[in-house]
Design a protein around this nucleic acid. Structure first.
Lengths: 203, 203, 203, 203
DNA sequence: GATGAATGAGCCTTCATTCAT
DNA sequence: GATGAATGAAGGCTCATTCAT
């Protein structure tokens, strides 16, 4: 029981540090964020942070992973089994809405997921791109399903169309995550995406 | 007259420094780039750089501005006066192609424009966003024109549709700027964008 | 009785820690050795070590003392009562051999005794010097005995000659403790020392 | 001329830093010595030291090299061409005296050359051993010469005898470098070494 | 008695910026 | 005008030591 309590405490502290890190990374960006900043938020010694994360980079990786896991749930709950364009549309809306919800609930996550990169040769940026890819992969599955079932057009370049749709979704999310975004604005984005997906721009 | 020559020389040096800065910022990212790196490329004393730019941040701002000016020419040459969906389509293709050309001619610019951010509170990122808006504004003009002339659908939310199209274009540009991108791949992107713009995804 | 058992247990743990310390100090040197390393070897909490030794320095001192005690036995078994140059020679050989044996049995001890120093102002180094003096003192007794009995030359500066002989012995020991030393090499050293002691270098 | 002056100034500063480093390393030992200590002695910013030496390790290496160069001159001035035991003896005395002179002139050098090591696996320690080897190599040449010319005994194991003599010399040097050593004491050491080298300990 | 979580002093190192030459 | 030597703020990281459990 002592162990359980202790394990729990350790997990809590790891989580606290993670949260402080998210805050500081979101606020200042990777390079300008300092370990001391995070320690200050938690009012703990900065050495303590190193008991939980090997170094600054590892902590940032943990932040990225945490965010990606968070985002991944959004698509994982949406199986590629819709049977009509209407259902498909609903699915895209749900995904957008849940992404927006996550980012609005925690602006810090939006800051990091949508804008943060480290350096020329880092893999955190690649991992963020990977998150984008994750979404694109799922979206592509939806398309394959739609083409198969006949409610999406056959001549579609599924891989690329998936990435285009993903970019539309993320653009919506970005718009929704901006300071002054309103429910109304978000609705306009959502509607327009749907319109374009269904019938394009043509008259 | 001496002054003219001198002024010219000053301008040339400013430009040299700017180019060196673009190279280094693209290669290492803002934080890892050092003033000394740039001076080394130019084989000048690094103190000299401070005679031409107030500080590192100002130099980066200049880099961003230079790139944005470069990009701006792309849309400025395209008047919102097309008369059919086909012409409109051609315009979008031209814009994409010219953006891609710029980025392929100078990979450094792509690196900085598409991926570089500095900190939480920088305005360079905002400026890039602003440039994105510039594109969106032009695209929106094309749309207003298209709706007016009747070849684009009337119920379109022009502002948002413009931003969505812009994001599709930039996504194409990103794909085209990746190391392994081929002419064929770029063509696939271009085609799919056009397809979606014209008729959406539906069967 | 409980106390006796307990006392014994305490002594055993003190000894375990000492041995772990010898291992780590020998391996990494004083500064790079960490208390945590030692605790890890023993699979005990590193806080525990502080219940047995005041601090890192005290632990190192204990290590040094332990080694010195070990070395001291070598000379203490050799009384200054030999009656001929031949017997004297045998004594020197025995001392060398026993020192070599100790260091070869436990390379860690050699590492620490022959090479380790801490800082400018440490007394551990002084203590090693003191141990060297201990040997010199014994050797000097052998010499006093030899001069008295007439088999060593009378004009000898006994104190200094003793230290010189001690240094020759330790040099042999060092040579013997090197990684690639062989029985043959050790024999060569032993023989040459004897030759020099007996008749010098002259033809 | 400007360059000459500047080069000279740079050399002087490099040397100043080296001297400060020798002082601090001698006083505190490698690990406890801090770059800030050295900068404080010179009353310069500690960043300045990094303009002249890559890092702490490189600075220490420079110190070691400087000392070794210093010591090397001692043997390099003594060619292996003596023609009698007497001349040979004189040579050994000169070497000892010059070593002692160096160490007495600069106690710091003695501290570092005779006692300093870094860690388990460093090469600075090896380099000091190398200095010892350097001396041994020269001494061995003297011996080869002596045996060839017939004034040293033929059955000598030259390599080992050389190292033994080297150790005797260094032991003398150590004794002479101790705080309380007097001219008289040094003379006693020198005389006894000579005695042992010439005729050993036997009566 | 044992533990190991927490702490923070302490140190190396980088590099933007200044300014005397 | 150009230079580059000097500076020191700033920050990552380690680990001996303490002490509540």
């Amino acid at each position: 029981m002592v162990n359980i309590a202790s394990t729990e405490k350790i997990a809590r502290r790891r989580e606290d540090i993670l949260q402080a890190a998210i805050t500081v990374f979101a606020d200042k960006g990777y390079h300008s964020a300092s370990i001391a900043d995070m320690a200050a938020i938690l009012q703990i010694g900065h050495g303590t942070i190193y008991r939980y994360y090997k170094n600054k980079k590892a902590l940032f990786d943990a932040v990225i992973n945490s965010i990606l896991q968070n985002l991944a749930t959004v698509v994982q709950d949406e199986p590629p089994t819709t049977d009509s364009l209407l259902e498909y549309k609903g699915q895209i809306v749900r995904i957008s809405d849940r992404l927006i919800a996550i980012f609005q609930t925690d602006r810090r996550i939006a800051r990091i997921a949508l804008y943060e990169t480290i350096d020329g040769n880092n893999d955190a940026a690649d991992r963020v791109t990977a998150s984008f890819s994750l979404f694109a992969r799922f979206i592509q599955e939806y398309m394959r399903n739609g083409v198969e079932k006949g409610f999406l057009r056959k001549n579609m370049d599924q891989e690329i169309a998936a990435r285009i749709v993903t970019s539309m979704i993320f653009e919506t999310v970005k718009a929704a995550t901006v300071e002054e975004s309103s429910e109304l604005l978000i609705a306009r984005w959502r509607d327009e995406i749907i319109q374009i997906m269904i019938g394009g721009l043509g008259a």
